[in-house]
Amino acid sequence: MLTKRIIPCLDIKDGRTVKGVNFADLRDAGDPIELGARYASQGADELVYLDITATQQDRRTFSALVREIARHLDIPFTVGGGISSINDVAPLLEAGADKVSINSAAVRNPQLIDELAREFGSQMVVLAIDARKSGNQWQVFTNGGTQPTEKKLFSWAKEGQERGAGEILFTSMDHDGMKQGFAIDPIQKLSRLLNIPVIASGGAGRQEDFLSVFKLGEADAALAAGIFHFGQLSLPTLKQYLSKNGVIVR
């Protein structure tokens, strides 16, 4: 049986891991390679590394870091942050990244999804969507959640799938950093709407939240950061709990 995946996310700034609370208030949570290897040995199913500085100069530093991550890690990992063209992607994949996540650039230029899927295959393309509830709609934001757009979550996710995205990574900005649980309703709706895997993100605070996002939200994977970085929940404890409650995990 295919397992549900647990994905720790590491935000990288100047070569270090940081975690924002509601996309602000950064705190240092350690060395990205050491932390990644620790998660891998504890049973993380994948990792996501987000480069949150992402200037041209930092980009070269980041692909060097990606290479070191690939050297040490024996599980798949996704990299993202500031990717705007095929030229940004090729060096990251050559360095050993398994997938890239694209966000703002795809909203500005949806064709980018088609191009990346054609060039590297859909399995490499994770479409990350940050959205916030506004009235009865989920509105899509770009630029680290600072820029509102015309796009709506469900139609944009569906369009992403049709253009060739291999996975959707949905972050509820309303839930991110709050540690009050995932946004179950839109996650369930996405899971039923799409024929590609859905990674749920934003709001993990307790092990029960992961159980809900898999059982009720029907997510294929769940992503979290701070809850793991600061040791509030360990991966082996979480997996044992999920397994005992009927979720298939590794």
Binding site: M1, L2, T3, R5, D45, S122, Q123, G166, E167, L194, N195, I196, P197, D220, A221, R250
Partner: peptide, 12 residues
């Protein structure tokens, strides 16, 4: 394409 999600992605 139905009823499974494609690609088959993850740990099995």
């Amino acid at each position: 394409a139905k009823p499974l999600k494609v690609p088959h992605m993850g740990w099995n």
